[in-house]
Structures are given as C-alpha cells and as structure tokens.
Nucleic acid binder design. Structure first.
Length: 349
DNA sequence: GGTTCGGCCATGTAATCTTT
DNA sequence: AAAGATTACATGGCCGAACC
C-alpha cells in the first residue's frame, strides 16, 4: 500500500465500501461486512490489513478497539474527489424541481421563489436546506419608494430588478409632507435607474455637491434622506428549511450537545452565511466536509452549496447542511441542478 | 440505583497456505 | 522464494442481564 495518500485499487474499493456502508447505517463498519460486500473476493482478515493501512493514512478511525471503522473527513474527501460515481439526478426529482421552477417563474415575490426551492430541496434530500441571498445591494434597482410610516418615521421600500424587496425605516423625519415625498420619490427614481444601492449612494453624494450650489432645499433634503437610508449595507437574507431533518440523523440524536450547537447555528444568520460563503465566490459547486467547513465549532456537519446568479452577478447561494455522513452522490447533483434552475428562473423574470 | 459478568463482535497477529 | 491471502486464536470493549 503506497503511503503518499494515493490508494491502489484495492484500498480504494475498500474505502468506497466503508464510506457507502457508513452513509447507509451510521454504524462503524467491520471487516466481515466489507468482505461480504465485495463478494468474498477477500477474506475479512485481508480486509482488516487494508483497513489498518487506511487508518494509518488517516482515512479511517476506530471509535474504540474492537469496533468497526468510521471514515474521517479526509476519508470522505477522498471518496468525493476520486471514488464517487457521478450519478445523474433521477428523472422524478428533476421533473419535480422543473415543475416547481416553472410554477414559480411568474411569482411576483423573489423570496417566495427561493423559499419554495429551499422547501423542495430539503424534502428531496432529507437534509436541512439553506438559501442565502446576499449582495442584495449589488443588484440593479427597479424602483425606490419613500412612504410615511408614522409621525416621525419614513419607510424606504426598494425593489430590485430580479424582484427582491427590501424595507428600511428612517427615524426622526417629521416635517416632510406627503406631497414632498412624492416629489422626492420621483427625483430619486430618476437617479436610481439601473443602479445598485451602493452605486446609487455614490451618485447621491455627487449630486449633493452640485445641489449645494443650486440651493434647492427639497432636493437637498431628498439626497440627505437617500444617503441616510443607504448608509449601512444591506444584510444578507437567510432562509432555512427542513431543520427537523437533522433530528432524524442518529449521530446527532445520540449526542445532544452536537444537536444543540447545530440548531443554534441555524438561528444565527452570520454563521449560516459563513458556511455558504465560499459558494458565493466560486462558480462550481462547493463541498465542505466536516472539519473543512469554515465554522470550527461545527466539525460534524458538511455543506454542499452552489452559487446562483443573475447574469454576471452572483445573487446568493443555495446549499444543504447535514451530517458528514451525507449521500454525496445524491446530494451533489441535486444542489447543482437546483442552483442552475434557480439562476434560470431569475434570468427569465 | 449502581456494579459485575458473560456473550458478542471486531480486532491484531502468528502460523499456514497460495500465487506468481 | 517472496509476497500476498487465509486461518485460527487471543484480546479488548460494548451491552444487556443478573445481581447486590
């Protein structure tokens, strides 16, 4: 058996069987099981030797002496990189996703679209599905609207061209009449045409200099308002569906501490964003296995995620979160396909 | 309720057999 | 003959049952 981390054919076959059996049963896998799976070509004792080598190379571990073996993160990594049979997505699943996409294509609200995707994906995969919509602010705007929302507060509603709606509340504005707001709206929308929020902010700051010279009180006011509203960057939206699927996983049910940490992470936007962050950068699907994922406190979960886009711009990422023991051959094509569909839904709005 | 015991399973290894 | 595979056996840890 070579020691540089590359496996010969037998080692690879054994590792593959161990990983697949473990994915199925969540139990440590013994040498006899593998021997049977391989049609008794090799005796359990021989398998044991091979498994001992695999353990030495860091692909397997033994929870305790005289237990079967469990794949490590790098064991899964090797499996995903070299041994995984790239399965095509099963017909019925593709149809289901496609039907849903077609149904949602006309939907008015973009976040309803991602929510539906998330729901379906979590039920097809039996994992928790997470969608992150980030960079809302990088999308070009369709419209901008200021509404009076109380004596001293104004609501800013912005709608992007893809159909995302965002609200912001501006406090402490009491002396603008409804009539003023209508004028300001018209003015800002004229400025906004086709720009994203940050671009618009820059534009507003430029305009402010000019307006100072012209001394138009209302326009000045409009710009100040716009600048205030756009001051802080927009936070990412996060949707989590299928949290309960985590409760079906024996490895988490047995360890309440792990379960708690994971469920808590689902409540924490920033953690989710961090988990799916890499998928935003890269075009290709990202698989983070166990300790590879960027959140150190969650070494027992894997993330399979892919970005989706609107034209050139990345809009967000969609991904599945589950135990390291995920059926990657199923989940990877699922996520890939969903991300592509999601992109095309937004493309055609 | 906590502890001990025996069955069970999987292991590692030495001795032995098979293949090349 | 050497390398590889198998057999046979002792060992270690888990788990449920019996016991205190």
């Amino acid at each position: 058996m070579p020691v540089n981390g590359v496996l010969d054919d037998r080692g690879a076959q054994v590792l593959r069987h161990v990983v697949e059996d473990y994915i199925e049963t969540a139990e440590p896998v013994g040498s006899r099981t593998i021997s049977k799976k391989m049609g008794q070509q090799l005796s359990p004792a021989t398998i044991r030797n091979i498994m001992a080598d695999l353990e030495e190379m860091g692909y397997l571990v033994q929870p305790h002496t005289s237990a079967g073996r469990v794949p490590t993160s790098s064991g899964f990594r090797y499996y995903v990189d070299y041994l995984l049979a790239r399965r095509r997505l099963a017909r019925p699943e593709r149809d289901q996703l496609q039907r849903m996409a077609a149904g949602e294509a006309g939907s008015a609200s973009a976040d309803e679209v991602v929510r539906q995707f998330s729901r379906l994906l979590s039920s097809l995969s039996r994992q928790a599905c997470v969608v992150v919509v980030s960079r809302l602010s990088s999308q070009p705007l369709r419209s901008l609207n200021l509404l009076r929302a109380g004596v001293d507060r104004i609501l800013l509603v912005s709608v992007t061209q893809a159909g995302w709606v965002e609200h912001r509340l501006i406090e402490g504005e009491r002396d603008l009449s409804a009539d003023d707001l209508v004028k300001i709206n018209a003015y800002l929308n004229e400025l906004a045409a086709g720009l994203s929020l940050p671009q618009m902010r820059v534009k507003i700051l430029q305009e402010m200099k000019k307006e100072k010279a012209r001394y138009d009180r209302l326009m000045q006011r409009a710009l100040l308002l716009g600048a205030r509203a756009l001051d802080e960057g927009s936070p990412a939206e996060v949707y989590v569906e299928g949290r309960a699927n985590i409760l079906d996983k024996p490895e988490f049910v047995e360890d309440v501490q792990k379960l708690k940490r994971i469920l808590r992470a689902f409540e924490e936007k920033s953690i989710i964003v961090r988990l799916l962050d890499r998928a935003l950068e890269e075009e290709a699907i990202q698989v983070s296995i166990g300790t590879e994922n960027p959140v150190e406190s969650l070494p027992d979960i894997s993330v399979v995620a892919s970005g989706y886009r609107l034209g050139e711009a990345t809009m967000g990422s969609i991904g599945l979160i589950g135990p390291v023991r995920m059926d990657y051959s199923h989940v990877i094509p699922l996520v890939e396909y969903s991300a592509r569909l999601l992109s095309s839904v937004f493309e055609h709005r």
